[in-house]
């Protein structure tokens, strides 16, 4: 992967908050730590899922 491709990929990731959020919440689940900060990210994810009709 050349430098330009890497930069472009990073930019795409930066433009897609859903993808970033998904990565953060995956890390949270794997970490096994759950405080207020983690809860807010999971809340954001849940609201996004509700928008997409994926939530329970």
């Amino acid at each position: 992967m050349d430098k330009n491709e890497k930069t472009s990929r990073n930019e795409n990731t930066a433009r897609d908050p859903r993808k970033i959020l998904s990565e953060i919440t995956t890390e949270i689940r794997e970490s096994g730590k759950f405080g207020k900060r983690e809860a807010i990210y999971l809340l954001l994810e849940e609201l996004m899922k509700e928008q997409l009709g994926e939530s329970n």
């Binding site: 908050p17 970033i20 959020l21 953060i24 807010i40 954001l44 609201l47 509700e50 928008q51």
Partner: peptide
């Protein structure tokens, strides 16, 4: 919050 999630001018940190 749902509206803000759809707003491209706001990033994740803003919404957090």
């Amino acid at each position: 919050i749902s509206k803000r999630l759809d707003d491209p001018s706001l990033n994740l940190i803003d919404n957090y």
